[in-house]
């Protein structure tokens, strides 16, 4: 299958949209009609052909445009890509994992030829054709994490493991839901999660950390997380809050279907072999409310989830200003019929 890459923007005129054929493969994050935190981690096995869970690193029609947006963010603010000095080996692990996976899963788009440590990498969609020495950063134009991070959709944090904890010691983060690598760099698992409400009391982070510390090589895991974003903007960083914060004032009952986007993160967890670090890809999918409700099951369920969402979460996810309008608007798509289990459309 050849993917038609779209020419679109995530800022300014916001021309981003999903093709009709791309809508059903959206990773809708609600398996039930109500939402509460859980440590909803499952093995990142290949699942359901055509879904975003089919391949290790999903490539879709937004790939090229997302990489252009990342380049714009990095040009503006190089601090979005940082690696502490001991994270170079982990950068190479990350590069290897992405190249090997993409060349295997998308042979018509990516090609990797290895002759010992001499590697030849071809990325057709981004027109890259490079030869370098694996493990020798002087043979790349930049840090291995940045090199590959500019060629893979989603933000990527790399967590060093030591002292029974995980440490946010490297990352390339340009499409984040309101968190800052520059603020979090060097923090441990509990420190960077400190602002999350409710979950600490539920013991979610203790359990998640225990799980991650023993994550085995070759057995990646995944979970979905979600929020809402006004306009299809990838870069909703604290650094740029003045640019996107006021967007929330612009939501009206008339424009809510096109303005408000369900923002889903497909988070995966990978043990890296040489560094013993954990790679944490946070792949963001955006879908306008008008696109979500084309799937009747999703329209019904999203109404129920939003209507019953706990106030702490409405506040934490930054939805307070337009939450009532949204629930009202979604109610027209909920006829009260039961919904089938699981996230996939009927």
């Amino acid at each position: 299958m050849t993917i038609q890459f779209k020419d679109e923007s995530f800022r300014g005129d916001f021309t981003y949209a999903n093709s009709p054929s791309n809508i059903p493969r959206f990773p809708f994050p609600f398996p039930e009609d109500e939402y509460m935190y859980s440590t909803n981690i499952e093995p990142h096995h290949a699942a359901r052909a055509g879904s975003p869970f089919e391949n290790a690193f999903d490539v879709d029609e937004h790939y090229v445009a997302e990489m252009k947006d990342r380049a714009l963010v990095l040009a503006d603010d190089p601090g979005r890509c940082q690696a502490l000095p001991h994270m170079e080996t982990a950068g190479w692990d990350f590069l290897e994992l992405v190249m090997v996976s993409k060349a295997r899963d998308y042979p018509d788009l990516f090609k990797l030829t290895m002759d010992g440590d001499r590697w030849h990498w071809i990325n057709k969609p981004l027109q890259i054709d490079d030869t370098f020495t694996f493990g020798d950063s002087s043979t790349l134009p930049c840090h291995p994490m940045e090199y590959i991070g500019r060629q893979v959709q989603g933000d990527h944090a790399i967590l060093d493991q030591r002292d029974g904890n995980l440490w946010m010691d490297a990352g390339i983060i340009t499409a984040q839901a309101d968190w800052s690598l520059d603020f979090d760099i060097g923090m441990n698992f509990f420190e960077w999660h400190a602002p999350v409400p409710l979950a600490h009391e539920l013991g979610v982070f203790q359990r998640a950390l225990k799980f991650l510390l023993t994550l085995p090589q070759g057995q990646p895991s995944r979970r979905l997380n979600w929020t809402l974003t006004v306009n299809p903007r990838l870069d909703t960083s604290p650094e740029n809050y003045p640019k996107w914060g006021p967007d929330r004032m612009t939501v009206t009952p008339e424009n809510i279907g096109e303005k408000v986007h369900l923002r889903v993160e497909l988070q995966t967890f990978w043990r890296l072999p040489r560094s013993n670090a954990i790679l944490f890809p946070i792949r963001t999918y955006l879908m306008a409310m008008n696109e979500v409700v084309t799937q009747p099951k999703w329209g019904r369920r999203l109404h129920r989830v939003m209507r019953d969402l706990r106030p702490e979460l409405v506040d934490y996810k930054g939805l307070s200003r337009y939450h009532p309008i949204l629930v009202e608007w979604l109610s027209q798509f909920d006829d009260g019929a039961p919904t089938s289990p699981g996230i996939f459309p009927d």
């Binding site: 000095p85 080996t89 090589q217």
Partner: peptide, 13 residues
Amino acid sequence: ISAPVNLFALDLR
């Protein structure tokens, strides 16, 4: 054999 597991890694710092 299992895949390797490291509970005694060097601290790379």
